[in-house]
Design a protein around this nucleic acid. Structure first.
Lengths: 205, 205
DNA sequence: TCACTATGTTTATGATGTTAACATGAATGC
DNA sequence: GCATTCATGTTAACATCATAAACATAGTGA
């Protein structure tokens, strides 16, 4: 697989030697932006500060992103891919049944707690993406993957429609719990998360 | 009850006659800010724009709020009070049992859908309030009230500890569902909300 | 070699939050 | 009743931000 516009495989974030051109500023910007955001609680990112970190002029980023929102969208997409992959992997490594279901929810919440700004950025941005813009498809795909991961540990002995409702229930539950924790309303506690998630009764769909 | 610093009873938002002083700029700012925010999807508020609406200079607001965050905190507090009151009223007017429980959840989600920016502002701000600041107590009180409203329709035949878990479950569920709707991930549907909320099984605490 | 394009740079613009210095209305003390 | 003081406005100024415009250079392909 060769590097496409969305890959973020670069050697370093800052300009290497004194070369005039940067190499792959777009990828470097995404990588540096991801790192910067992931060190914060809130997804605040300044174009100028980022450019400074990259050793590049403030306006250079406009050669790769039409505006700040586009950069944030790219970061949100990258974050969403990471979350989806993380969730899918968890679904695979965890057994089924109610225990596995609780574990999946815990995984979602834990990821959110470990990447608060990224989590916020994802949901901040996906609601705003202009569907005519660069890659709404990728966003949709990534979310589809996330939902699939969530639905993976759903009980099989209920109808598809019930499964959809149950999946929404599960997603709402862990998402709400994660948000309440990120917003400082609830203290993170793995046991509590499991207990709360397992209160769902699938026979009530 | 006479007007204290947090009341918002004013005659009009803009300056009345040519008087030099405004009357009650603090209250007017909160009222105008609330209205402005409630007309939006996201809690973006510019100090200068707000001052313009009030017919007042941009820096005038600094006589009543140390900075923008303090104004936003005041707005969030007002919003939280409204949400809490709304929720408490719903708890009172709705019967108990599972049906009442579902109705309470629906009330929370519907309020969020009707006041998206306010909802976001509340949870944006309460996580950031400096506990040494103006009125952390009021914030805490207001949230306590909200939680009480949520817990009001909790089943009585379970232990207090189970009730706490169940309340957190309920809060997480409706909050997450509301947020997913606000973020455009789920379409609002009253029946669906009720169905999702009613999947909770309190015997599993 | 010569144009062309991609990707940088510098400079400039208008918006924002915030501070400082100043002005005036209303309230207070004599 | 008058002078002083305090609360609450004002204007001017500053730093920062996103962004646009004009210019410059590095790499590419004819």
């Amino acid at each position: 697989m060769n590097a496409n516009a969305n890959s973020v495989n670069i050697k370093s974030n800052v300009r290497e030697s004194g070369g005039y051109h940067h190499g792959d500023l777009r990828a470097a910007a995404i990588a540096a932006g991801m790192q910067k955001i992931d060190e914060q609680d809130h997804p605040d990112l300044g174009l100028r500060a980022l450019a400074r970190d990259l050793g590049v002029s403030a306006t250079a980023l406009y050669r790769h992103f039409p505006n700040k929102d586009a950069l944030l969208d790219a970061l949100a997409l990258e974050g969403l891919n990471r979350l989806g992959a993380h969730q899918a992997q968890a679904a695979q490594s965890v057994g089924g049944g109610r225990e596995g279901f609780g574990e999946m929810g815990l995984t979602y919440v834990r990821w959110a707690v470990e990447h608060p700004a990224l989590m916020r950025l994802i949901y901040d941005r996906v609601g705003k993406v202009d569907l005519a813009a660069t890659n709404p498809t990728k966003m949709g795909e990534a979310f589809f993957q996330l939902r699939a991961g969530i639905a993976a540990t759903m009980p099989k002995d209920i109808s598809p429609e019930q499964q959809a409702t149950a999946a929404l229930h599960a997603w709402s539950l862990v998402h709400g719990l994660a948000m309440l924790i990120l917003d400082g309303q609830v203290e993170y506690d793995a046991d509590l998360v499991r207990k709360v998630v397992l209160m769902t009764d699938f026979t009530n769909c």
